[in-house]
C-alpha cells in the first residue's frame, strides 16, 4: 500500500458531511419552493407541504452540525477552529496558489509556493462557504420566524436565494475537484477515512507536509 498521512480528524469529517448532506437536502427541498418547475419533484417526499417542513428540520440539523463541530476541547473541535483561523488568514502565498486556479482546474500545472494545510484555492472555497452559510442561515431563520411585511423579511428573500444558487454553483465545482479532477481527487479518500496519499500531500501542501503531516505517515 502507498504511504499515507492523516489529514482530516473524525470531527472535521463529521462537520463536512453534516454540512454537505444537509445542504443537498436543503437545496432540493428549497428549489421546490423557489422554482415552480421543481414543485412536482417534491412528490418524492409527499408533496410541497411535507417538503417545506423537511426543509425546516434539516435547516436545524445544518445549523447544529455546524455549531457543535466547533464546541469543546476534542481533537475535532480544535481542528475545526484551526481550519477557521487558517482559511481567513489569506496571504501572498495563498494568492500565488489561487491565481493559477483556472490552469489547474483544466488539468494544467504551474508551480506555486509551498502551501499550508489548506491551499489558497481551498481557503477561498472555505471563505465563500463560511460567508454563504452565515448569510443563508440568518436569512433562513428570519424567513421562518418573521411575521408581517418588514424590510428585514423582504431582504431575507433575495439573500437566501442568492446564497443558495451561488453555493450550488460552488458545490458543482467542489464535486468536480473532489471526484472527477484527475489530480485533486486523490484527496477524496481523506474526507471518508481521514488519510490521503503522502505523495499527494507533499505535492499539494508541502509546508504542512514537512511541518506536521510527515509525522503521521503510515504504510
Amino acid at each position: 500500500m502507498a504511504k499515507e498521512v492523516y489529514r482530516f480528524s473524525a470531527g472535521e469529517r463529521f462537520v463536512h458531511w453534516c454540512h454537505g448532506v444537509a445542504f443537498l437536502l436543503l437545496l432540493f427541498t428549497g428549489l421546490g419552493v423557489l422554482v415552480y418547475a421543481f414543485q412536482p419533484a417534491m412528490n418524492v417526499f409527499g408533496g410541497i407541504q411535507v417538503t417545506r417542513n423537511i426543509h425546516r428540520v434539516v435547516a436545524v440539523l445544518f445549523t447544529l452540525g455546524m455549531i457543535i463541530g466547533f464546541i469543546g476541547k476534542g481533537q475535532g473541535a480544535r481542528q475545526m477552529r484551526r481550519w477557521f483561523k487558517d482559511v481567513i488568514n489569506f496571504r501572498k502565498d495563498d494568492f500565488d496558489h489561487a491565481k493559477n486556479f483556472g490552469i489547474e482546474f483544466f488539468g494544467g500545472h504551474k508551480p506555486f509556493p509551498p502551501q499550508g494545510k489548506f491551499n489558497g484555492g481551498e481557503k477561498l472555497n472555505s471563505m465563500f462557504t463560511i460567508l454563504g452559510t452565515l448569510c443563508i442561515v440568518t436569512s433562513g431563520y428570519i424567513m421562518w420566524f418573521a411575521s408581517g411585511p418588514s424590510l428585514l423579511l423582504q431582504w431575507a428573500y433575495p439573500i437566501h436565494a442568492a446564497c443558495a444558487l451561488f453555493m450550488a454553483a460552488l458545490l458543482i465545482a467542489h464535486l468536480y475537484l473532489g471526484i472527477l479532477h484527475p489530480d485533486s481527487n486523490q484527496a477524496l479518500k481523506g474526507i471518508f477515512t481521514g488519510w490521503v496519499p503522502a505523495k499527494f500531500a507533499y505535492e499539494h501542501y508541502e509546508k504542512w507536509y514537512n511541518e506536521e503531516a510527515k509525522e503521521t505517515m503510515k504504510g
Binding site: 482546474f105 483544466f106 488539468g107 424590510l151 423582504q154 431582504w155 428573500y157 433575495p158 436565494a161 442568492a162 443558495a164 444558487l165 451561488f166 450550488a168 454553483a169 460552488l170 458543482i172 465545482a173 464535486l175 468536480y176 472527477l180 479532477h181
Partner: peptide
C-alpha cells in the same frame, strides 16, 4: 429587494450554476 430577487439574483444564479456545470464538463474533456 423583490426586483433584486426576481430580476437579478435568479438570472445571475442560473448563469453561475450553468457556468459551473459547463466549466466542469470542459474540465473533464480537457
Amino acid at each position: 429587494s423583490l426586483t433584486l430577487w426576481k430580476d437579478i439574483v435568479y438570472p445571475l444564479g442560473g448563469i453561475a450554476i450553468g457556468a459551473s456545470a459547463a466549466a466542469i464538463t470542459c474540465g473533464v474533456i480537457v
